[in-house]
């Protein structure tokens, strides 16, 4: 791995056309290493405290667990049962996967359609989607929740429709930016060969759209997985997602159980780290690509 990293680093330096002396490079490495440790400390601190008895956490949060303060996995058991963490994980996973799938499929189809069919209506639609990107959630929050209740969308399946609608702005915008760069001649040839628009979209356009689809999927997954207010208001506490479960632990009466809190925070971070480690390449690329188009 080190070999690969090295060549990457060298390539990066060449890209920017600036190489620095060995001494500066060493100093820089040390400074960055210290910073990296500082970046990790908050997470490591929570991890360390999750193994301490709840009474010892606020007293001495910066000490390692000792024989006296070590609580084993007691906090984890308590945290999981108090918040219903396993079902929260299930709801979070289902809502995220279903919403992201719906967003990627439907907004790519819509983006292609409004780019190809030129006219006042599609133009107006495009600007409406762009406009939706800058409207803060609080603006539509109250009426949206009422409408969701009236239409029986206040459950893990119904909320997918809400996410599709509220996430459509950014996703349609990003897909449109890419569709514009695809030459129409490809589609004309396919049409002469007797393809209908559905075949054209899924057999010709979809494979070309894939990189953008991955970017859109990652940006939306990050949003939906971590979203708190929208699912809390739409679903209530009947179907708790992970952020709702964490907040629920705090919101209860009396003092918070710090041990359970630590354990739940650790459990909430683990899936994110696993996801990050397994698709890091796509995530970082997706973020950079998403920014260029935004």
């Amino acid at each position: 791995m080190s070999k690969k990293t090295k060549s990457n680093d060298a390539a990066m330096a060449m890209d920017s056309g600036m190489e620095i002396s060995k001494k500066t490079s060493t100093i820089l490495s040390v400074v960055l290493a210290i910073l990296a440790v500082l970046f990790l400390i908050p997470i490591l601190l929570v991890l360390m405290n999750s193994f301490k008895g709840k009474l010892y956490i606020s007293d001495a949060p910066f000490t390692f667990p000792t024989a006296k303060t070590f609580a084993g996995i007691g906090n984890f058991i308590e945290g999981v049962t108090k918040t219903g963490f396993l079902s929260a994980f299930g709801y979070s996973l289902f809502i995220t996967v279903a919403s992201v799938a719906a967003i990627v499929l439907f907004t790519s189809m819509t983006a292609w359609w409004i780019t190809r069919v030129k006219g006042k209506f599609t133009n107006a639609l495009y600007y409406l989607f762009v406009f939706a990107m800058i409207v803060p959630f609080q603006m539509v929050m109250f009426p949206m929740v009422k409408i969701a209740n009236m239409l029986y969308l206040d459950n893990p399946v119904g909320i997918v429709l809400i996410y599709l609608g509220f996430g459509a702005g950014l996703s349609v915008f990003m897909f449109c930016g890419f569709v514009k760069s695809i030459p129409v001649s490809l589609e004309e040839a396919a049409m002469i060969d007797g393809c209908n628009p559905i075949q054209i979209f899924f057999q010709i356009i979809w494979p070309i759209l894939k990189p953008t689809a991955i970017t859109v999927a990652i940006l939306n997954a990050m949003w939906v997985w971590n979203d708190y207010l929208l699912p809390y208001l739409v679903l209530g506490t009947e179907y708790k997602t992970i952020p709702i479960a964490v907040q629920y632990l705090q919101g209860g009466y009396g003092s918070i159980d710090m041990g359970a809190m630590m354990a739940v925070l650790v459990l909430a971070v683990i899936p994110i780290i696993v996801f990050y480690m397994s698709c890091q390449k796509y995530i970082i690329k997706g973020v950079a690509a998403g920014a260029v188009k935004g």
């Binding site: 990293t5 910073l35 992970i242 990050y276």
Partner: peptide
């Protein structure tokens, strides 16, 4: 991180990570 020093990828990975954790957590 664009000066070609060692461990660039590792540093980038670490610095980006907190962004994935949601606001409540």
């Amino acid at each position: 991180l664009t000066r070609g020093i060692k461990g660039t990828n590792l540093f980038r990975t670490v610095f980006f990570m907190p962004n994935l954790i949601g606001g409540i957590v």
